[in-house]
């Protein structure tokens, strides 16, 4: 679904539309797990991990 992000009382020269990203299963899992973080609830945030297997 796309949305026009500028809202006002006239038409702008250019439209600025964005595609609102749907929540992925990964997003949902990480958000739910974060709410219960502590003790045995720990997880890797895949968006932040630096994954370079060539480096030692």
């Amino acid at each position: 679904m796309s949305n026009e992000v500028l809202r006002g009382n006239f038409e702008t020269r250019d439209k600025v539309e964005i595609k609102q990203s749907e929540e992925t299963l990964e997003d949902r899992f990480e958000m739910e797990a974060k709410k219960r973080l502590g003790g045995s609830i720990a997880f890797v945030s895949k968006k932040k991990v630096m994954w370079d297997t060539d480096k030692k």
Binding site: N3, V5, L6, R7, G8, N9, F10, T12, V16, I18
Partner: peptide, 16 residues
């Protein structure tokens, strides 16, 4: 003539 861009609501980063 007024337009509002709610960056906090949309959270789309610098490109938008």
């Amino acid at each position: 003539q007024v337009q509002v861009y709610d960056e906090n609501a949309w959270r789309q980063g610098d490109e938008v």
